[in-house]
């Protein structure tokens, strides 16, 4: 006996299993980042100055520590990748597998570009002698963006699987494969939303 509703929606709820699953997972992710954000707020309202003393030097605004143009650039990359992944799903809905491949490939490239830019940012901090241990601003910055970066890595791995070996399913069970892409997309959009909140709260405020 097979497990029902993997490809089609259950009539009374109107959704297939994986969609309920991914939204539940995202709900828990909301609480995970919620916990981290509340830690950020808690520490910030208790701090006499923000960013304050970092590595023996006083910084008045986050602009003096972080590179806002680069952060903006990365925001754009992530937003673009959100569009490409939703386009890859739309291509499958229109039965255009070639287009799917192209858009999913672009999504993966965007993700990688985001990580490369992030790596340069981290490296710039390290070369100025700024490490997580040098003050709560940096601790928050590295922990939150680092955890977000891990989520990007996870997304890239999943997307690459669906771009490469996982895409064989299109031939055997196209409906279920389209669902999988939608679910992968939901996760990727969530990672984008987290960044949409991380960027202004850490870089701009």
């Amino acid at each position: 006996m097979d497990i029902p509703y993997t490809a089609t929606a259950r009539p009374d709820t109107g959704v297939y299993n994986a969609k309920v699953g991914i939204w539940l997972f995202l709900a828990s992710e909301v609480m995970l980042f919620g916990g981290l954000f509340s830690a950020y707020i808690f520490l910030r309202i208790g701090a006499p100055a923000w960013p304050g003393m970092l590595g023996g030097q006083l910084y008045k605004t986050s602009f003096d520590v972080l590179n806002v143009p680069i952060g903006t650039f990365n925001t754009m990359i992530l937003i673009a990748s959100s569009v490409t992944i939703v386009m890859s799903w739309a291509s499958l809905m229109m039965n255009d597998f070639k287009k799917y491949k192209r858009y999913m490939g672009l999504t993966i490239l965007c993700g990688l570009a985001f990580l490369v830019v992030k790596a340069f940012e981290y490296n710039a901090k390290f070369s100025h002698g700024l490490f997580p241990a040098d003050g709560n601003f940096l601790a928050i910055y590295f922990t939150l963006t680092g955890l977000h970066g891990l989520h990007v890595v996870g997304g890239i791995i999943v997307n690459s699987y669906f771009w490469g070996p996982g895409s064989k399913m299109w031939k055997t069970d196209p409906k279920r494969f389209t669902n999988r892409i939608e679910v992968a997309g939901l996760y990727w959009h969530f990672v984008d939303i987290v960044w949409i909140f991380l960027f202004p709260t850490i870089y701009l405020l």
Binding site: T13, G14, V15, K19, V20, W23, S82, V83, V86, G185, L186, H189, F190, D192, I193, I196
Partner: peptide
């Protein structure tokens, strides 16, 4: 993003 990319605008009640 949530409303259009994640289709929340036309999502089912259970979600």
């Amino acid at each position: 993003v949530a409303a259009y990319f994640m289709h929340l605008i036309s999502e089912k009640k259970v979600i």
